[in-house]
Amino acid sequence: MYQAYRQDGADRQIRVHGSGSVKVKPDTAVIQLGVVTEGTNLTSVQNENASTINRVKSKLMAAGVEEENIQTSDYSVYPQYDYVDGKQEFRGYQVSHMLTVTVEDIEQTGAVIDAAVQSGANRVTNIEFTVSQSYYYYQNALQIALGQALATAQTIANTMNVKLDRKPFRIVEEKGPDVPPVQPYAKTQALSESAVPIEPGLMEIEARVDVWFPFYP
């Protein structure tokens, strides 16, 4: 996108858009997993759940996950009912304890999931991949975007036979990422396989700018 115009009392301007991107291999995985237990006695169900989740945490740490990278993301207790002949009958309780597990060595993601499942985790609901140094890669993408904007403006100026001032007087950067970008992973594959093969692929980090350059006859 570009615009070339002149405002009253202002220098002639060329407005151009630039975009840039870099592809990066993720280095961190964030896994949502946990334990769901059911039964008719709430105290027994809660105790069973607590015992299993503690076993899962111990196994995760033994697999190399730091304790501070294991956090409770959700804990819930639900009464469950069946409907028989139009009547509601109490069936028992369901207790769910979900953890957010951050794996800093992405190559160990499959082993971490295996360790959790083998120690009693029966829910793996989500896996996301991210880049720990995303800001650095974003700066590279931003450089590409600015270079593209300048090249476009120069092409326009050359084609229109005008002189371009390569020093822009205005640059508007589209808001960069506040948090590292994430890439989801298929849940069903993580749930259905043993010795889970994890391949995060590549992520794309993008930057976009609008730039105004002066030009002269």
Results as ranks from 00 to 15, higher is better:
N126F: 05
A111D: 15
M160W: 12
G92F: 02
A111F: 05
V179M: 13
R15M: 06
D74N: 14
L202S: 12
Q108T: 14
V101Q: 11
Y185W: 14
T130A: 05
T102P: 03
T188D: 03
I144D: 11
Y83G: 08
D85M: 04
E128D: 11
S76V: 08
R123C: 14
Q94M: 13
P197E: 08
F90D: 08
A115G: 09
D82R: 04
A121T: 09
G20V: 02
Y137E: 13
E66L: 04
D105S: 12
K23P: 02
V179R: 15
R12G: 15
K23W: 11
N140W: 05
Y185T: 05
E204V: 14
Y83H: 14
A195R: 13
K175A: 13
L150H: 07
V179T: 15
M98C: 00
A63M: 03
G92R: 05
K175R: 12
T159C: 01
N122P: 07
V182N: 04
V103R: 04
D178K: 06
A29V: 12
V22D: 02
V162H: 00
H17Y: 15
P200E: 04
Y83V: 15
P200W: 06
G18C: 00
V65C: 06
P79V: 01
L146S: 00
H17K: 14
Q32S: 13
N47W: 05
I14Y: 00
Q108N: 15
D105E: 15
R170N: 12
A141R: 10
P184A: 09
E174A: 15
E66Q: 08
V36Q: 09
M203L: 07
Y93C: 04
N41Y: 02
K187I: 13
T130Q: 06
R166Q: 12
V56T: 01
I144V: 13
Q7I: 02
V124H: 03
P177L: 11
W212L: 00
R91M: 13
E107G: 09
Q183E: 07
A195K: 14
S44G: 06
V211K: 03
D85K: 08
V209Y: 08
S96M: 14
K187V: 14
V95A: 07
D27N: 12
P79S: 01
R12P: 12
K87T: 13
A111N: 15
Y135H: 07
V182K: 07
P180Y: 08
Y2Q: 11
V117D: 09
A115L: 10
N49V: 11
A50E: 15
P181T: 01
T125R: 07
V22Y: 03
N49G: 05
P177V: 08
S19H: 05
L146T: 00
L146G: 00
T40S: 12
D114S: 09
T37R: 07
V211T: 03
P177T: 06
T40W: 10
G64K: 06
A63G: 04
E66R: 03
A207D: 08
D178S: 09
Y78A: 15
V45F: 01
Q183P: 01
G86I: 07
S19P: 02
V35E: 00
F90H: 09
G110S: 13
P177C: 08
Q148L: 04
A186L: 05
E89C: 01
E107Q: 09
I198D: 03
L60R: 04
T43S: 15
W212A: 00
P177E: 09
V211M: 03
T28R: 14
Q32G: 11
